[in-house]
Amino acid sequence: MIDDERLMAFADGMLDADEHRRIEVALAADPVLAAKVARMKRVAADLRGAFAGQLDLEVPPRLQALVAPKPAGNVVRFPARMRRQAWLGLAAAACLGLAFVAGRATSPELMRTDPTRGLIARGALQQALDARPSGGGASGGVAIALSFADQAGGHCRVFELEANAGLACGERGDWRIVALTEAAPSRAGEVVQAAGAIPDAILHAADERRAGDPLDAAGERAAIAARWRKGP
């Protein structure tokens, strides 16, 4: 006696060669069983037939767009923890304007103003950008959050400076500060910032420049060792 599950597996061609032959022999001697298998096969064929042509239909653009590989330069997905709302009170202003600074009063020990290029990192900020890996916490008031390759073939780094966050990109051997936010004092006058979080404004600026995902630890070590020289 062959049960229905085995007959079905036979009809679907799922049995190994020996068992398949054994059932073939049994079917040859039993017209009722053979008719049953024929019906099983017919149902399977009917079902497949009903779905004929489905695979040739055009996929709606919205579904295509969801998975299609993104061209470089689109919005990057930085790690979620980086995206946390950071600067209470600043978010709105930062998203609108974003401090693309060109000479605002900043700590002269950490930045100098170049007449044509704007702010250039110096001192402890420059040293941190040159040599410190990301995620190491603050030292000398400076913390480096992440690094990435930019579309110009160089590198950029997101940093935190006291209550400010900024984006610096390598340029002619210097780190040019291309974006800098200024912490907005809350109503009470004190600065409110969640530790370790980067404001959206800086991430937006990073998104616009990045040529790939943030460097991992190994990639960053290599870039530091190569003194952030541009790739080929």
């Binding site: 779905f51 489905q54 695979l55 998975v67 590989p69 993104k70 995902d213």
Partner: peptide, 23 residues
């Protein structure tokens, strides 16, 4: 890399749609 995986996912869309239609 991610772009290659995405390209493979695009190729699977017709089958995925058929599966979802059946479900």
């Amino acid at each position: 890399d991610e772009a290659e995986i995405r390209a493979e996912l695009v190729k699977l869309l017709p089958r995925l749609r058929q599966f979802a239609l059946a479900l």
